[in-house]
Design a protein around this nucleic acid. Structure first.
Lengths: 343, 343
DNA sequence: GTGAAAGCGCTAACAA
DNA sequence: TTGTTAGCGCTTTCAC
């Protein structure tokens, strides 16, 4: 590989002049610049990324952290990741995928200190998250997808759960549903309280109250099995409810199957809205699912962008961004009717 | 950050001795070593990754390439990626996610030449793939997930489509199905012929012939819409067929919906097997789908592992590996019956 | 068993 | 407008 010195010699200038011609950090005469550019293309010169990184102290690498054990990676995650990777590339950075158990966050701090990583993006953030505390303590730059309870001084991109939940409940309210069930994640979660669960649950209660409706909460793990059981619980305890808002997609698949078992039809007897599934998942649902789909790509991109801006010391960063996502009405919601009358 | 020189001073040895103590590349007396290790831990010393990369010429980074336009990223992809990332981490390497259009493969070659990347992993490989040719030409180390027609000298991990398809067809044969339809990807694909399509289609024909069964091929894009149309085509042209083997998951969802429209039930009237869907997708299907699920994690891990071994110049690499995946019988397949008799 | 020193390729402070 | 040079932190050859 040709290097700076080769280019300099070929162009008849000094090494530093080549550098300056490349960065534009100081004025270079037109002719000199042209000679340099010609030499570069003649020699097919490519700057050495590692030398630049060593010299500048910036690797231009950021890592996206994934718990590889506690919870499986879900379908929707790829959207966050790809969007972040894309955004990073566009800004001249590289996104490394880092599978790391929660306990092993020290490894990552170490890589930041060793100069391999300029910063990290964290997902699945708990309201009280040890990892965030450790990163702060070690002054490792980071951005969150999600947020902790303590939002001060933190760069994050998250969902506006209040707004998303309200969109769903407003839609149901317009269809005349007054007795709702919110299908939430099991709170006895290994991860501690993930913001999504806590915030959306609270938002559901608030939004319903605002519309003069009632909400019952059912907790279930995000599995088909748990969803089926949740439907049984629903049938036993909350028969008068006519609509479900679900935080989770897998559980809702089970729930729908459970409803079928007890002879309830969607949407004739029960309306279903999901606030966290991919568009593909919604379309594959039977019947196609009314959703407020998380704008995963926007969130992933924002996290990467704001982290990188922060790393570059830019002034105009918007460190804390919330995204709602749009209501898409498909076939799982319908006008509320009296179930008794129908059967 | 403490550096080598600081450690050396604290331990009262030379810088090189610290290096050798760390690598074990030459004998160090026990006492010296202990002093060095103590100094390292006292100073909380972390070797600088970029300096090591510059000096050694290896960045320990590999990139996984993703087309960001032509085809959406599908649910299953995350499994390949995570497995590769995990494997790479375990071997001391880092996996960068690289969204890149097919035409922009030069960018990647450039990054290899600039020392940023030690090698790359390619997905969605076409039988005649320009990218592979370019990488070979520039001597950029790579591994494929999938394979080209020309398998010589290439490191790849791929599916054994012949074996997978045979598992599916054998299962149907055991259930008495003799007239089959193979639901394949549309051959008029922008990407050129992806190996999966060509190989599995051919394998289906061969396997059926071996069992004395017949196979009709229907081509459809991997979308719900296309699947619905495919079901209409099926109903019109291939009514006597009693079982479907599908290459794609999304299309099969549509197909199943299309069957419902014309009054055909799964599995009573038609049996369904899919050879490429995730376990989650299979379980979410209604009825739960009999599958030969691709061992995505094994394939992703193998690609990363063999690439890294190749980079390390190891002798015992297994450059070409095929994985079948296991047949999992769920509820979408049943004994063949005469449909006429049932209706 | 240990040390000195050159140099990987680049950048930026200093000098002209 | 351009050149000289020190040095980022590490590895490894050569020397003792």
């Amino acid at each position: 590989m040709a290097k700076r010195a080769d280019v300099a010699k070929a162009a008849g200038v000094s090494e530093s002049t080549v550098s300056y011609a490349l960065t534009g950090a100081r004025p270079i005469s037109k002719e000199t610049k042209e000679r340099i550019l010609k030499a570069i293309s003649d020699l097919d010169y490519k700057p050495n990324a590692m030398a630049q990184a060593l010299r500048s102290g910036n690797s231009k690498m950021i890592a996206m952290l994934f718990g590889d054990q506690e919870r499986g990676i879900s379908d929707g995650d790829i959207e966050y990741v790809m969007a972040a990777a894309n955004e990073a590339r566009g800004l001249g950075y590289h996104l490394i995928l880092w599978p790391v158990r929660r306990r092993a966050i020290e490894d990552v701090v170490k890589q930041v200190e060793s100069g391999l990583l300029d910063g990290v993006i964290l997902m699945e953030v708990a309201l009280e998250d040890e990892r965030v505390k450790l990163l702060k303590k070690h002054k490792a730059p980071f951005a969150l997808i999600g947020r902790t309870n303590d939002e001060i001084d933190t760069v994050f991109a998250d969902r506006d759960f209040e707004a998303a939940t309200e969109l769903a409940i407003n839609h149901l309210n317009n269809l005349g549903h007054k007795n709702l069930v919110f299908l939430s994640t099991s709170s006895a979660n290994v991860l501690g309280n993930i913001g999504a669960t806590v915030r959306s649950e609270r938002a559901a209660t608030d939004a319903a109250a605002a519309f003069g409706a009632s909400v019952q909460v059912i907790h279930a793990d995000n599995t088909i099995e748990a969803g089926i059981n949740a439907a049984a619980e629903f049938f036993k305890k909350y028969r008068t409810c006519t609509a479900i808002v679900s935080l989770n997609a897998e559980a809702l698949i089970g729930f729908s199957r459970g409803l079928q078992k007890v002879g309830l039809r969607v949407p004739e007897d029960v309306s279903l809205v999901c606030i966290s599934t991919t568009t593909a998942g919604a379309q594959a649902f039977d019947p196609p699912l009314t959703t407020v789909t998380p704008p995963a790509a926007e969130i992933g991109a924002a996290a990467a962008r704001e982290l990188i801006r922060f790393l570059q010391g830019q002034e105009d960063i918007e460190p804390q961004k919330l995204f709602t996502g749009a209501l898409v009405v498909r076939e799982s919601t319908a006008q509320a009717t009296s179930r008794k009358a129908l059967r």
